[in-house]
């Protein structure tokens, strides 16, 4: 099992191979459908994003509410393909890691190869377990979107699988 950190280093990025199981620690942003749509529209209008995605990690998730005493509610991955339309623009800005579940489009995979990014899979439906790896959650922006707002998570040993590596090798295509 490989250990990696977020933000990820260039060395770690190159070392990851499709199929590798990893434990990741560090900081990441959450964003799903509605936040991606807003960011995409900002870019199309030539405006700045509310977060600097360069070198960063985005986890496709909309957590359930946290019970009192919990850092975060259950928070498993959502289906990544719904973000495909918006993804190449973010990769061109330097986004390095995406976490979600399921297939990606050819356009996303090509952009990942061009930009040297990886796509990691979390286990869909293992939301209560995954929440144990989230130490801290803080709201960053788009509060009005509720569960779809952008949060910054501090994570410790979150279990992931390299689904698509920087060369475009893809576990779902096997």
């Amino acid at each position: 099992m490989k250990k990696i950190t977020f933000p990820i280093t260039e060395e770690q990025l190159k070392d990851l191979q499709a199929g590798d199981r990893v434990l990741a620690s560090g900081y990441l942003y959450t964003a799903r459908d509605a936040a991606h749509k807003r960011m995409y529209e900002l870019l199309n209008e030539g405006k700045q994003l509310p977060i600097d995605v360069s070198g960063q990690t985005i986890y496709y998730v909309g957590a359930a509410p946290a019970k009192p005493g919990y850092a975060v509610g259950p928070c498993g991955p959502t289906s990544s393909y719904r973000m495909d339309k918006y993804t190449p623009s973010l990769l061109d800005l330097g986004l390095k890691v995406m976490i979600g579940k399921g297939k990606r489009s050819d356009a996303v995979i090509e952009s990942m190869k061009k930009n040297g990014a990886v796509y990691l899979a979390a286990i869909g439906g293992a939301a209560a377990l995954i929440a144990k790896s989230i130490i801290k959650s803080e709201l960053v922006c788009y509060e009005d979107l509720g569960t779809e707002a952008i949060y910054r998570y501090e994570v410790k040993d979150i279990p992931l699988i390299v689904a698509i590596d920087t060369k475009g090798n893809n576990v779902y295509a096997r």
Binding site: A64, G76, A126, L129, I161
Partner: peptide, 27 residues
């Protein structure tokens, strides 16, 4: 890998029941 994923699901479902939190965030 397949065994490990299923183990995670078994562990997950136990945590959800023990702590009365949702199995999946998409309720």
């Amino acid at each position: 890998l397949a065994k490990d994923v299923l183990t995670q699901l078994i562990d997950n479902n136990k945590i959800a029941a023990d702590e009365q939190i949702p199995i999946c965030q998409d309720t």
